[in-house]
């Protein structure tokens, strides 16, 4: 067990190293000039000599490898640098944005997970009937729906026409941050989370359906049927647990997709989460923030996959008990 954990951690370190190196290289090759992005419209007032001084101050005159080593070593000592657009330490921006995003992602994750498993199971148990065809059609329709378009549609219907939900942001306008309640946050997160989960449902549902059909083909289901189990009793007794295992692991592994989807949903709803922060940081050349968010996202997706593995160990007795056939 201890060996497995150490191996996993080693893999995490390697992954983060590779991601950091790759992102750093890509960023340094990007056409965005960090000095110009930092100074903005005042660039005309900066003389070439001043510019060189700024570059020297930031270490941009150093070779790429030195720049990378400097950056990575300060990260290792806990210093993520200062965000150029927010003018506060990167870590503060990330902590603040992370909680907004996590609320959004968690809501979407639970909604799409439950709904997807329920719909997928029903479709599989009723394979070939109109219910199955309806669920399938619904999933394929959603899979071909762009997330931003669905977000705009929901905004139009629920916020503009019906006025049930706010049109954007993560808190009401015109009050101080200390006055914002958790209820306010939740209320603002519902519509973007709905956008994310409506699309997420399709994946979970189709996957669940496929797994459930596999389970229904197994000898133990034939056996259970021969012994008189059918319908909901058969599903609860032998179907659910055997199907849930692969379905859950896929759902955990979908953290990455959700993260990507969150970026789009946050743009549409002007929701100040990590996704919006990373887009701003990328476009405005805020390299410290950008690189840090990329690292955090990689960590987040890795943790999602790891949780799936751990859950397997908890649920599946074959793995839990070492799997030795006597």
């Amino acid at each position: 067990m201890a060996v497995a954990i150490i191996k996993k951690l080693l893999r995490l370190v390697l992954l983060l190293f590779a991601v950091s190196l790759l992102t750093f290289l890509l960023v340094s090759m990007s056409p965005v000039d960090p000095v110009r992005a930092y100074i903005g419209a005042d660039m005309l007032l900066v003389s070439p000599e001043q510019r060189e001084l700024i570059e020297a101050y930031w270490g941009l005159d150093q070779p790429l490898i030195t720049q990378y080593l400097q950056w990575i070593s300060s990260i290792l000592s806990g210093d993520f640098g200062t965000s150029l657009i927010h003018r506060v330490p990167v870590i503060e921006v990330i902590v603040d944005r992370f909680f907004s995003s996590i609320l959004l992602i968690a809501l979407a994750w639970f909604m799409s997970g439950t709904l997807g498993v329920v719909l997928g199971s029903i479709a599989a148990m009723k394979k070939g009937t109109w219910i199955d065809r309806f669920v399938n059609g619904y999933c394929y329709l959603l899979l071909s729906t762009p997330g931003f378009w669905l977000g705009l549609l929901l905004l139009m219907v629920f916020s503009v026409w019906l006025g049930i939900f706010p049109t954007g942001l993560s808190a009401p306008i015109g009050i101080t941050a200390s006055e914002v309640t958790f209820g306010d946050r939740l209320y603002h997160a519902i519509l973007p989370a709905l956008t994310l989960s409506i699309i997420g449902v399709a994946n979970v549902c189709l996957h669940t359906r496929e797994k459930m059909l596999d389970v229904l083909q197994t000898p133990y289901i034939l056996q259970a049927r021969a012994n008189g189990y059918a319908g909901i009793r058969l599903f609860m007794r032998h179907g659910l647990r055997n199907m849930l295992l692969p379905a859950i692991s896929v759902h955990f592994a979908s953290f990455g997709e959700l993260f990507g989807g969150a970026i789009i949903a946050e743009q549409v709803f002007s929701y100040p989460g990590l996704g919006q922060a990373v887009v701003d940081a990328g476009l405005q050349g805020d390299m410290p923030l950008f690189l840090a968010i990329v690292l955090i996202s990689a960590l987040f997706v890795f943790v999602g996959n790891w949780l799936a593995d751990i859950l397997y160990l908890v649920i599946d007795p074959r793995l839990r008990k070492g799997g030795s056939r006597s």
Partner: peptide, 10 residues
């Protein structure tokens, strides 16, 4: 059942 495969593994 023909074999142990016909028992629910979980």
């Amino acid at each position: 059942p023909q074999s142990v495969e016909a028992l629910d593994p979980l």
